[in-house]
Amino acid sequence: MIGSLRWSRFPSVTKSSRYLGMAIGIICLVPATLGVVAAAFGWLPHDPLQFIGESNGGPSLQHFLGCDSLGRDLLSRLWAAAAYFTPPGALAMVVALSLGVVLGVAESLGGRFWGAISSWCLQVMDSLPKFVLVLLVAAIARSNLIWIMAAVGATFAPQIAAAIRSSVERLRAAAFIEAEKSLGVSMTRIVFFHILWGHARHVILAQLMSLMAYALLVETSLSYLGGELGVQEPTPSWGNMIALARDGVFTGNLLPAIIPAIMISITILGFSLVGQGLLQLWEERA
């Protein structure tokens, strides 16, 4: 009997491994963050758009990571690209969060009519493949990154709304909602403070992290593929940097292609790991 009882719970994720994942994720985000800070304060080593070094020059004291095939400083371009991506990325978060919260709350608490309307809106957005909708917007907006990221945010709204809906559904019958009501706490405060802030903030934050990973993926993919859809030269993007260095690899110039590739991968990994850590933190508490 004791044996069977001991079986009843599988060992869950251990504490140390959870923090390890979180820590690795944060470390992975450091290079990109450095770039954003450096660009914001004007600390870039060189102008990312100027042809100052020799073509495909190797690392030196002047150019820490060397130059690309047009002789521009690689490190400056790398950091400038991170900075250039940040405002549109933040816009994607804002759009996803506001649309997701409005539609999610309306869906689960808006009564029959508004609930049906917003659930329909969410399903419509969910049934269109995200990337293709982004392609459409990119084609129309003539590769304006602001619009592209707004579209990414909008296509991600159903994910946020789903997180909200599931936490509302779970708590709808909880007695404390009724207790707050009888205290005279307003419905708005109950929904936003007691339910969303109290019980859904980790999940929403984790969703936002995976949104950032996805947004970065979309931006670099579009910029890499070309076709006047993503970020255009000479504005730096990790994607178009790889595209430019694509053929240099066969002549032995590995650095200009590999470094942006590493940056993309570790930044995406960082966002995913942080998001995962947040979710596990939440699972353990719940």
């Binding site: 493949p129 995200k130 293709v132 459409l136 990119a138 084609a139 979309v218 593929l225 076709g227």
Partner: peptide, 28 residues
Amino acid sequence: SFVLGSLVVLEAALGWPGLGYLAWRAAA
């Protein structure tokens, strides 16, 4: 929905004919 996006990128980058390649070329 996400894998469909990857499919578009995959087909576009490989140049394989398919719905994703078509969508990307059409957008471009």
